[in-house]
């Protein structure tokens, strides 16, 4: 049997879907992109533009489709799915890379111990009711004791012991504890920036002498500061400059931006007297009320309807 004719036909078919170019196509399957790096043929371009463009596009698309059909596929309801490789051509991102979240204390511990996360279901099975109930929220399992109509009271309980209130308090404490831990975790996550802040402050204080810390006492293990140079203003400078620097300094001293402690009472700017301490001393620890009452007793009676307190 002569199969050469069949083989020739098959070869012709294969050639039919192949495109040969001087420079091979650059194909990026991840982007579904093909780049034809051959120079544009001027003759065909001027002859018939649309036909030339369509031929160019057809050749490129044929090569790209050939590459895509050559990829490994999986079956699906919508026909074969080609598994695309990752993108070779890199595009700039639209947003910066996401920052990794700081680990919570529990997560750190779980990672060290090799405990894997187990997600709790929102609903749990209630044996008594024989149905699924919410773990928390409306008619939640965590509120069962508070909401049941009859609760056993322990034998040694006080006379005014309220089991419902006690259960509620316990539950509220649990949520409060959780909230406290959440806040602590956030603070812990931010602590790294606090450290750098402290280091910066320390570096500033170390160079805040006239000699830029040259003659300061050095502690053991203290690192040498680098990149610090003394800088002098020129001896002769226009008066305007001097005025400007002086005004800048004054305004920075005056501004609230860098003040460490803010005075709470605006009406008493010179708050050298500690009023609370003075009252405590004068009333011998009785407080302001006692002081007022004593004075009221001595003075005009009934002036204020006998109220000792103001």
């Amino acid at each position: 049997m002569d199969v050469s004719s069949i083989l020739d036909a098959q070869k012709a078919r294969e050639q039919n879907v192949q495109v040969d170019k001087e420079t091979p196509f650059e194909i990026d399957c991840g982007h579904l992109m093909v780049t034809d790096l051959n120079p544009i043929d001027e003759e065909s371009y001027t002859e018939n533009l649309e036909e030339h463009l369509q031929n160019l596009a057809r050749d490129g698309t044929q090569a790209l489709i050939g590459a895509l059909f050559g990829l490994p596929t999986t079956k699906s309801d919508y026909g074969p799915l080609a598994q695309l490789p990752s993108r070779a051509y890199q595009l700039p991102r639209a947003k910066p890379l996401p920052k990794p979240k700081p680990q919570t204390k529990w997560e750190k511990f779980a990672a060290a111990k090799g405990i894997s996360h187990r997600k709790k279901d929102k609903r749990v099975w209630d044996e008594e009711k024989q149905e699924w109930v919410n773990r928390w929220g409306k008619d939640g399992k965590n509120k069962q004791v508070e909401e049941q109509w009859l609760t056993e009271v322990p034998r040694n309980a006080d006379a005014d012991y309220n089991p419902q209130l006690a259960a509620r308090q316990e539950r509220k404490e649990r949520t409060a504890k959780n909230e406290k831990q959440r806040v602590a975790n956030i603070a812990r996550g931010e602590s790294s920036s606090r450290k750098t802040e402290l280091e910066k402050t320390l570096a500033t204080t170390r160079v805040s002498t006239a000699s830029m810390g040259k003659f300061d006492k050095k502690l053991e293990g203290e690192k040498k500061l680098r990149g610090i140079k003394r800088k002098f203003d020129p001896t002769e400078a226009p008066v305007g400059n001097e005025q400007k620097t002086a005004l800048k300094l004054i305004s920075s001293m005056d501004s609230d931006a860098r003040k460490m402690r803010k005075t709470h009472r605006g009406d008493e700017p010179d708050n050298t007297l500690n009023a609370r301490k003075a009252i405590r001393f004068a009333s011998k620890g009785q407080g302001a009320a006692a002081l007022a009452g004593a004075r009221g007793g001595k003075g005009a009676r009934g002036g204020r309807g006998g109220k000792g307190r103001r």
Binding site: T23, E26, H31, L32, M33, V34, T35, D36, L37, N38, P39, I40, L56, A57, G60, T61, L64, I65
Partner: peptide
Amino acid sequence: KPLIHFASELFD
């Protein structure tokens, strides 16, 4: 998703 085709050596 569209297929994208570029033609010219200037793109490189």
